[in-house]
């Protein structure tokens, strides 16, 4: 009984003492923070993914508050929503923010793209690219070891059983880390409103593309002829003119002889 009372009083007393000390300290040593930083920080997603190029969300919030605008600063995962919220806090115009997501510009699955050798090396894309470009016959296509999957902080890319990564659009925040991680630069951030993409990245001439892959762009220019507004061809590769929208590109899908123009 006695011991219980003593320990209760002692521990309670100590607790009370430290509570008072900490309470005084928190008032006396309070750091005055810019309230705008706090507000901007709370408008950010809080993922600390680093896609903005700073150490974390708080760091970005400080930079935005100091600059007072969103010029050259931005949160890719937060997208238009975060930009609108931050603009409101800063009292500026949000401008026209386009929501984007990552798109894989390769359709060469295990069945469709030829392999030229067995690759037994380190199972990541960067290492495979070092050893003569891995197993695939196409030197532009996806290597399929999932460096993009590893780097994605949102689990928005997964390499499927077909050997190609697939983007889960609901999870993708267009942070761009996968674009950086891919040694072959086959991932591009495309506005969410554009559903039609050219799923090929090869700059090789048509004959070589055909030798390596069944669904490669052979730069036959049929798409440009069918829908001149929708496509352009550069370095033996067709490209959708995203700014003209899907309607301009639509008519060429059926015409593409290798079926490398796809609707996602």
């Amino acid at each position: 009984m006695n011991i219980l009372a003593i320990s209760l009083i002692a521990m309670g007393g100590l607790g009370l003492f430290f509570a008072v000390v900490l309470g005084i300290a928190s008032q006396k040593l309070k750091v005055q923070e810019d309230p705008i930083v706090e507000d901007v920080f709370s408008a950010l997603p809080g993922l600390n993914c680093g896609a903005c190029g700073f150490a974390g969300c708080h760091d970005l919030a400080e930079k935005i508050a100091a600059q007072g605008s969103l010029d050259n600063l931005g949160c890719p995962p937060g997208g238009a929503k975060a930009a609108a919220a931050i603009s409101k806090i800063l009292g500026i115009d949000a401008g026209n923010q386009i929501e984007k997501r990552a798109v894989i510009k390769c359709g060469g699955t295990r069945e469709l793209a030829k392999e030229r050798a067995d690759y037994n090396g380190v199972k990541n894309c960067t290492a495979a690219e070092l050893v003569g470009g891995g197993a695939k016959a196409c030197s532009y296509g996806c290597l399929g070891f999932g460096d993009c999957e590893t780097v994605c902080p949102f689990d928005a890319i997964q390499v499927g059983p077909d050997g190609l990564p697939h983007v889960i659009e609901e999870k993708c925040t267009a942070c761009g880390l996968c674009v950086e991680a891919c040694p072959r630069k086959i991932i591009e951030l495309v506005p969410c409103s554009n559903r039609i993409v050219v799923a090929c990245n090869s700059n090789d001439k048509g004959g070589e593309v055909r030798k390596a892959c069944k669904v490669g762009c052979i730069a036959c220019t049929l798409c440009v002829k069918t829908a001149p507004e929708g496509y352009s061809i550069n370095c033996n590769l067709a490209r959708v003119n995203y700014e003209n929208g899907d309607s301009a590109a639509d008519s060429a899908i059926a015409k593409c002889p290798t079926k490398c123009i796809v609707r996602l």
């Binding site: 380190v122 990541n124 960067t126 290492a127």
Partner: peptide
């Protein structure tokens, strides 16, 4: 473990 292959990767990076 492909140690030397990983080290080569590190050196290149």
């Amino acid at each position: 473990i492909p140690i030397v292959q990983l080290v080569k990767l590190g050196k290149l990076k």
